[in-house]
């Protein structure tokens, strides 16, 4: 395949940024999008240019490192697919592909297509855990968890923290991420003791990081490579109102 790539370049957080256009020929249909980017970088090197920087690591759709907004879609147009699992057979020969970083104030650009998603870590640090001292846990089977709850918790826990929800949201809201993380723990009996505190502090950390507000568009869930449902946002809203009311009457 031959392709034209319109790629975002930016030297750092303070740089304005610009698009660059490159022609790339002889791309295999079986290669992944990132392998195509590798090929482009090798070509840029040969031409004496600096390669394009982009985040990637496991290349099997689970580490959440890869990002890229491809033709306007976070992780590209395919459903339930990360950029690293997106294959070139989904594009057509001669196509012009626009590649941009995940854009959000809370995700400042580090360089080119690499953005800083540490805001997600801060949200988790605020309460995305169950306080359990190593060694103090009861037997794994001491507390039965209904299969349904466990399955729902797993659906939420499948979140890879890639930030596609933020990138696809018109308001750069991080509600789906926060809801998935909080929902996973709030659904389990182990997570009940800290539920209220968790919800309030995670939402507060989210707000402080400069994300936008949820407007129930559903773009986040549509872009989510792990298909995390909007139900978790409803649940987060519910858990949050309960926690607030309990706090008022406490």
């Amino acid at each position: 395949m031959n392709l034209i790539l319109k790629v975002w370049r930016q030297d750092g957080a303070d740089d304005e940024g610009r698009f660059e256009t490159h022609q790339i020929n002889g791309v295999s249909e079986d290669s992944s999008f990132l392998e195509m980017m590798d090929q482009l970088n090798e070509q840029l090197l040969e031409e004496g240019n600096e390669p394009i920087l982009f985040d990637h690591d496991c290349r099997e759709g689970v580490c959440g490192t890869c990002s890229l907004t491809i033709n306007g879609f976070a992780h590209g147009p395919e459903n339930s697919t990360t950029t690293c699992q997106l294959h070139m057979r989904k594009f057509s020969d001669g196509e012009t592909i626009t590649v941009e970083p995940f854009r959000a104030r809370a995700f400042p650009v580090v360089r080119d297509l690499v953005v800083d998603r540490s805001a997600f870590d801060r949200i988790t640090q605020a309460g995305g855990f169950i306080t359990v001292r190593t060694g103090s846990a009861p037997d794994g089977n001491a507390l039965p968890v209904p299969k349904d709850d466990s399955d729902k918790a797993m659906d939420a826990a499948a979140c890879i923290g890639c930030g596609a929800c933020v990138a696809s949201c018109k308001n750069a809201s991080a509600m789906l991420f926060t809801a998935a993380k909080a929902g996973h723990l709030n659904l389990l009996p182990q997570g009940q003791a800290e539920k209220d505190k968790r919800v309030l502090s995670m939402v507060s950390a989210m707000d402080k990081s400069g994300f936008g507000n949820c407007r129930n568009y559903g773009e986040c869930s549509a872009a989510c490579p792990k298909d995390i449902s909007l139900d978790y946002i409803a649940k987060l809203n519910r858990d949050h109102v309960k926690a607030k009311i309990k706090k008022i009457f406490a």
């Binding site: 169950i130 794994g140 507390l143 299969k147 996973h184 723990l185």
Partner: peptide
């Protein structure tokens, strides 16, 4: 065996049977 206990307590959603056990 301690690892499983620890992970369950942390909220790792291991697969379960209908009775709720691992």
């Amino acid at each position: 065996t301690n690892i499983i206990d620890q992970c369950v307590a942390q909220g790792v959603p291991f697969a379960r049977e209908y009775g709720g056990l691992l």
